[in-house]
């Protein structure tokens, strides 16, 4: 037996889950379990109570309209990867999902679980940052909607209170479907990325960048949008020179050291991956970047 002892609860609906969160001391929500269970098996976490939210109806729906795609917090990563809506409206998410663990973990792992665990290398967090996704959380006081820039409070600490539960994530769509790309560098396929980068981009008919979103995971304690790089390249022609410039500017960001990878190495990866992700996103715009 690997995990320490805990009491298991399986609420049937959201209200029951919120009531349990309010009543129980030291409780953890169990979504897909692909991060929580390993941490419990290694006894990094030893919650007194585990609240399994897999039985709650209403957290597994997906809906889409012209302006957004909304995904229930308990939608599995494998289902997102199979979804025609995601392939059509959020192709960058599909590209990122192929790098999330392995197909044997995506079969259980959920989007809400990933965003609440909030590993800074998590591919889905990089995509959520890219779109300024809005996360809905439900608590005893009702619903709050948190835009992604306000979601990470610190390393692996989302802006969700102990008695709240994430219910859905909404991705606002761009009016003009953007060129997109997701790239990452990891030691092996399926490992957490050392650095991951994602990009959305619009060009006008002459190849000038009119809108751009660029996000970076793994480089620092939280996922970042590179607003300074975005604003510096808007209005410029999308060419090799601007990709180089963007990469160099991105490479100035603060990066973290850990036992395996130095901050300097991460900076270099940020530079290289930003260049690549921009280039690939431009190639996927309608004009293919050929003005």
């Amino acid at each position: 037996m690997k995990s320490a002892q805990f009491d298991y609860h399986k609420p049937k609906n959201l209200n029951e889950a919120i009531a349990l969160l309010g009543r129980l001391e030291d409780a953890k929500l169990l979504a897909g379990g692909q991060s929580l269970v390993p941490m419990m098996n290694m006894r990094f976490v030893q919650p007194a109570h585990v609240i399994d939210v897999n039985g709650i109806a209403g957290l597994t729906q997906m809906s889409a309209d012209v302006s957004s795609v909304t995904i229930g917090a308990m939608v599995r990563q494998a289902e997102l990867l199979r979804s025609k809506v995601i392939a059509r409206d959020l192709p960058v998410m599909a590209e990122a999902l192929r790098c999330v663990g392995h197909f044997q973990t995506r079969s259980r792992g959920t989007i809400g679980g990933s965003l609440c665990h909030l590993d800074p290398s998590a591919e889905l967090a990089v995509v959520a940052a890219l779109y300024d996704a809005e996360i809905s959380v439900q608590g005893p006081g009702g619903e709050r909607v948190i835009a992604f820039p306000q979601w990470p409070l610190a390393y692996m600490m989302p802006s969700v209170r102990p008695d709240e539960i994430a219910t859905k994530i909404s991705f606002p769509l761009w009016s003009d479907p953007p060129g997109y790309s997701f790239v990452e560098f990891a030691r092996r396929h399926g490992d957490f990325a050392i650095v991951a980068a994602a990009c959305l981009i619009n060009l006008d008919s002459s190849g000038i960048i009119t809108k751009c979103s660029l996000s970076i995971g793994g480089a620092d304690q939280i996922v970042h949008r590179l607003g300074n790089v975005e604003t510096s390249i808007i209005g410029h022609l999308a060419n090799e020179e601007i990709f180089e410039f963007a990469g160099d500017l991105a490479g100035n960001m603060d990066t973290m050291d850990d036992a395996y990878v130095s901050g300097a190495y991460r900076k270099r990866l940020v530079r290289v991956l930003c260049r690549r992700v921009l280039k690939k996103a431009v190639e996927r715009t309608k004009s293919g970047g050929q003005a």
Binding site: K2, Y8, K10, L30, G33, Q34, V37, P38, N41, M42, V50, D52, N54, A78, G101, H102, F103, Q104, T105, S107, R108
Partner: peptide
């Protein structure tokens, strides 16, 4: 802890890690 894959089995038609699921689930 979900890394080696040795415990993989088919759960309701899909491959999963049996070390990352509780039996009660």
């Amino acid at each position: 802890h979900g890394v080696c894959g040795a415990c993989t089995l088919i759960f309701n038609g899909e491959a999963v890690r049996s070390c990352l699921m509780l039996a009660v689930q």
